[in-house]
Design a binder for these strands. Sequence first.
RNA 1: GUGGAUGUAGCUCAGUUGGUUAGAGCGCCGGAUUGUGGUUCCGGAGGUCGCCGGUUCGAGCCCGGUCUUCCACCCCA
Length: 486
Amino acid sequence: MAQKPSVPKGTRDFSPEEMLRRKYIFRTIEKVFQKYGFLPIETPAMENSETLTGKYGDEGDRLIFRVLNSGTFISNVTSNPVARSRWMRLFNEADEGTLNVDQYYQEALSKDLPLISNKALRYDLTVPFARYVVQHQHEITFPFKRYQIQPVWRADRPQKGRYREFYQCDADVIGSTSMLNEAELIAMVKEVFERLGLEVQILVNHRKVLAGLAKLCRVENRFIEFLTILDKYDKVGLGILELYADAGFSRASIERIELFLTKEGVHWSTPLESQLFAQFTTYGIDIGLQGLKEMNLIQDSVDALLGSNPIGHFSSVFSLARGLDYYTGAIFEVKAAEGSLQSSICGGGRYDDLTGIFGLKGVSGVGISFGADRIYDVLMELGKFPEQVAEGTRLLFVNFGDREAAHALPLLRKVREAGIAAELYPDAAKLKKQFAYADAKGIPYVATMGSEEIAQGIVSVKDLRSGEQKAWKADDLLMALEDHTD
RNA sequence: GUGGAUGUAGCUCAGUUGGUUAGAGCGCCGGAUUGUGGUUCCGGAGGUCGCCGGUUCGAGCCCGGUCUUCCACCCCA
């Protein structure tokens, strides 16, 4: 019985036209990565569950796609006496009314989950990379600069710019604390989007400055919550003060927070920086001072790397807090300056101890991740893909039948040996159909070699763009193409 | 995970207060041109109206459920 074909929610097929445009994005990013000295690695689509869980916050854990154990996973439960009795209780009528079914189910699931699922699809490329570094530490020369372009999966609800399967293009440096790495990443971001011809805003902030700010406001014990609300500053403005109040932050803390919310908005300003510097100094908040120092180092290095520029190469946004829980230093985010997609198309930052949880302590890393699918959507909406996104077939030989096709083959070989993409239509179809095929595929030249041409030792070449057709000596076929190459 | 929309031909969409054989444009196929695409003209194929159930004499239209896509929130690339 025929079933209606479909793909799972949030996943997509890509046509040849789409793939050519996607490859153009990957190619562009990859070239820049390599130019800055990064080398590729790949990791499996699946990781062990314990590698991923607990790394992305509660919200993140919920979005991890779990993979059911293959084979008879349910018998893993029933053949384990403890697990078996635990699950049987759910169906025991004696417990009717006395058992909180939902709660009991959650507890039982968390205890026996490994029997049911012990693998998961990777959620990002950074955590698998951290695992890779620890696992292969003896074969790695630090600082280790790697890039990785692979799909990741999130069990999120799909919407604009949000997919359940999408590609990330990551570049990370691990084993170096120098701010030069941050500067290089920013330079790469700038170059990638310049090459793609896309106007972007590069936003930078520093978690240590934010940590210092949290201390000043006496909210360091609720740091993540503090950040989540601060991050909304560019959207709701001073309305975040209410959000802090709603969240139960103390009046004194909120008043202190308000002192730093200047009229200049979310961007750093010299007065704000002086204010922070003075306060950090007065109260001896070293982490904040450290953050300010690093921000300045990054600023100087980027200017030196890219040449000073009155507009600046990036914007420092002190309310920028986004990024995963593990960021500890500089944080980056990139948004398209035009188009309807407001979410970030690229993001990253420094994480001081990501490998610690896998047993390798005190190794700092910093990385950046490009969201290829979102970049695609923006370029598409703005019509910014180049016309000729890839070289397709240049020449099609018409097929008149076995005898004529046999005569075309040596010429086909000659054209290909010259590095020109060419093909022979496989069937002796009507000429109308063969020409329409060339037209649909955007093939500029069609070579016609029927009995008349063969008899005269010539080949007719038609330029589909101009509609002109000329006869060439078979030996001069390449000239027909070169003449019109643009 | 919360809230709100959407689904009619391959694509973009129309379809009156529920009423007989559900339409258009584009695309596709064929012909005009038995060795010439794109333009033009003529003809043709293609739809269990997302799926399941309900209300009704009667459902593309009303109701419930479900799936998809999309939007906002949450979060993020």
